[in-house]
């Protein structure tokens, strides 16, 4: 299955739950609603043609207006790659944990929670992972974050 066939297959079989986005430059990127995330992820993992059994990466993104959560998936048996993107509002961003689908998501979600402040439902262990235990300066990866000892590189 090449990239175009994969896009067509996903658009076709997902019953409207996956929408192709134009931003993907190498692999197709699909948008999914936060409420349908688990259902879609389980289908992507279990479908006989797809078998996305490998979660490469999970990134939280702050675009300045909204949060995005991007799941990079790969299929080891079929050599496929696809990205799934969930768009969340800036206030009260919350997403369901995909740990039950791919256990690899655990630490990525904890990291996203501490660095961006995106709440992860049903995670089970939301504790600081990378930041010090006594960190109280907010969510450092947000675009508007600032602190007294944070030195920005001068423009030149």
């Amino acid at each position: 299955m090449d990239k175009d066939q994969l896009s067509a297959y996903l658009t076709d079989k997902s019953e409207g739950k996956l929408t192709l986005l134009e931003v993907g430059r190498h692999d197709p990127i699909f948008k999914v609603e936060a409420s349908q995330l688990i259902e879609v992820c389980t289908w992507l993992r279990d479908d006989e043609q797809l078998k996305f059994d490998f979660l490469c990466n999970l990134s939280g993104v702050d675009t300045g207006e909204q949060f995005e959560v991007v799941y990079q998936l790969a299929s080891t048996s079929k050599s496929l790659r696809v990205d799934i993107k969930v768009i969340l509002p800036y206030d009260g961003a919350e997403i369901e944990s995909v740990q039950k689908v791919w256990a690899a998501a655990n630490w990525h979600e904890r990291e996203m929670w501490e660095l961006y402040g995106i709440n992860v439902k049903n995670h089970g262990k939301l504790e600081f992972l990378l930041l010090p235990e006594d960190w109280d300066e907010g969510f450092p990866m947000r675009k508007d974050w600032d602190a007294p000892d944070f030195i920005r590189m001068p423009e030149f």
Partner: peptide, 10 residues
């Protein structure tokens, strides 16, 4: 890591 880093001791 002097500039733009929130976690490095300078």
């Amino acid at each position: 890591f002097y500039y733009d880093s929130y976690s490095v001791e300078k």
